[in-house]
Amino acid sequence: MTTKAILDDLREWTGPDLRIMEVCGTHTAAIMQSGLRSLLPTGITLISGPGCPVCITPAAYVDKAVELAMRPNYRLYAFGDMLKVKGTDKSLSDAKADGGHVRFVYSPLDLLGFAEKEPQFTHVFAAVGFETTAPIYGMLVKKAYEKGLPNLEILTALRTILPALELILESGDPIDAFLAPGHVSAIIGSAGYSDLAQRYQRPFSVAGFSPEHILYAIWQLAHAVRNGRHDVCNLYPGVVHQEGNLKALALLDDVFESGPSAWRGIGILPGSGLFLRNKYAAFDAGSHGLDADPPPNPACRCTDVILGRIHPTACPLFGTICTPGCAQGPCMVSAEGACGIWHRFRGE
């Protein structure tokens, strides 16, 4: 089957109207960049999902990170996309401008060297992310434990994607099929979605990030729905295995335990957070209970965007008072938030 044949087949789509959710922000960006939406028939709609960890991190977490950054004997590190997200008042960028110690690094593992080199400071990584990134924080903590480093900590806002997908399926919003997040799947495996696929009778497709991969997945999902199939199809077999990355999963299980956690704009989801186990509690910078969010602009519709109920352009604030330079809601802040991406590419 060639890409042209798939496009021809989709162009003549006579099946039911479909809403397919692309869960991952990186997929959303790839879809926008490639102009893929314009190639799809009117009956097939792509909906952006909750797959941006920065967007769903509560304000209370950012507040805590800002507070740590302002302590004179602390050094706070984060990935670049966390720096601009505002807490109740301030972002980490603001904290830096106010004299706080905030540094952007390429890898959390860099902190092992920093902690050894500057023992007079406590070095904290703002550990935000999904299953893709969580094992790397696990490795950091495990190595710090083995080295007996007393001055390395992580502030966790780690979330697992399956409880959010279950919420979307439970909320009765009509999502017919899911384009599963590719790199989360590299860790949890394509089998991770089997239970949801069976219980809610929805097909899942695991795909890479090239436009061809995404197109194949959409085509496969469309036919799966039409034929009443609700299995998990792995179209990324060079990277994703059915059982996932067993080393990474064992490490996650060793270092973290799951618990209830808050998603900005959604609320608390049971079992959706990863927290350090008791054995590693000394490496926790105070990650529990960081659930609170200030009331958003009442017109902000980030919750509906995250849950796939509306496209970003349906929000009255989108592109008017809410822009990447002056974001009203979390989906506009991050480079991988649905609103931020749509704004960058000016929608459909």
Binding site: M1, Y106, I136
Partner: peptide, 27 residues
Amino acid sequence: LVHAGCAIEVMRKEQADELNDLLAELE
């Protein structure tokens, strides 16, 4: 495949080629 300074999976060429087999199967 590298994420945040860490290899998260080894990419196997023969498994990448499976994609073509899969598409043939789907067809």
